[in-house]
């Protein structure tokens, strides 16, 4: 089963439908036990970092993700669901992230924000997530991002006036700053890759 962690408001329906294209058993759940034990967990996230972190902690998200890493179960963080993996979020007010990875999340240095739309990704060497969609564009909508590479990971970057992390692949935690569930056929392929190489692996 793939569980989509429901820890607040936002559009989870699209994510549910998109993942259901690649995997037969997908549910949206706020149940910590289900989310901790699912074959794959998707951590979505829209809005501000601090608000997301508060809701995530309230939903037991920190324990869920720690338990999954300890049990070697795959987790996919999307957008703010990626940003919360870092140690420090500087969106609006300084706020601690989950600290699974070192580094800050900070505002993009660009004249027009948010960064909204379809951008290309410079895919890191050895990526399995981007197999077959290396040249495609993906849909971003954010003003903040992580900018320093995660050690011992496949780091893929994008550029909007400056370089930032577009995706990170580690053995159990994978994240994308863009929205694969909103990135058309390319996004569906990327989700399929995650299912193939992490959930079914």
């Amino acid at each position: 089963m793939i569980a989509i962690l429901d820890y607040g408001s936002g559009n989870l329906r699209s994510a549910e439908r998109a993942f259901a294209r690649a995997y037969s058993d997908v549910i949206v759940s706020s149940d910590p036990a289900i989310c901790a034990e699912a074959d794959g967990l998707v951590v979505p996230g829209v809005g501000a970092f601090a608000a997301c972190m508060d809701q995530l902690i309230e939903a037991g998200g920190a324990e869920i993700i720690d338990a999954r890493i300890a049990h070697e179960l795959p987790t996919l963080g999307i957008c703010v669901g990626m940003q919360v993996m870092f140690s420090d979020g500087r969106e609006k007010s300084a706020h601690k992230g989950l600290g699974i990875w070192p580094g800050d999340v900070s505002q993009l240095d660009a004249p027009i924000l948010p960064h909204i739309g379809w951008n290309t990704v410079s895919v890191g060497e050895g990526s399995q997530l981007f197999t077959g969609v290396e040249e495609e564009r993906f849909y971003f909508v954010h003003s903040y991002a992580a900018k320093s590479e995660v050690p011992d990971a496949v780091n893929s970057t994008a550029n909007y006036n400056e370089n930032f992390l577009a995706a990170v692949e580690t053995p159990y935690v994978v994240t994308t700053q863009f929205h694969p569930e909103k990135s058309g056929a390319a996004g569906l392929k990327l989700i399929e890759n995650w299912v193939t190489h992490w959930v079914r692996a």
Binding site: S9, N11, R13, S14, E181, K182, S183, G184
Partner: peptide, 24 residues
């Protein structure tokens, strides 16, 4: 599976929540 914006008749933050939950 592309972004969807919905407008018209939105008067409260709860109206927004209803639309987001529907898939906007």
């Amino acid at each position: 599976f592309i972004p969807l914006t919905v407008g018209g008749g939105i008067r409260t933050a709860d109206d927004v929540n209803t639309l987001l939950r529907a898939g906007a």
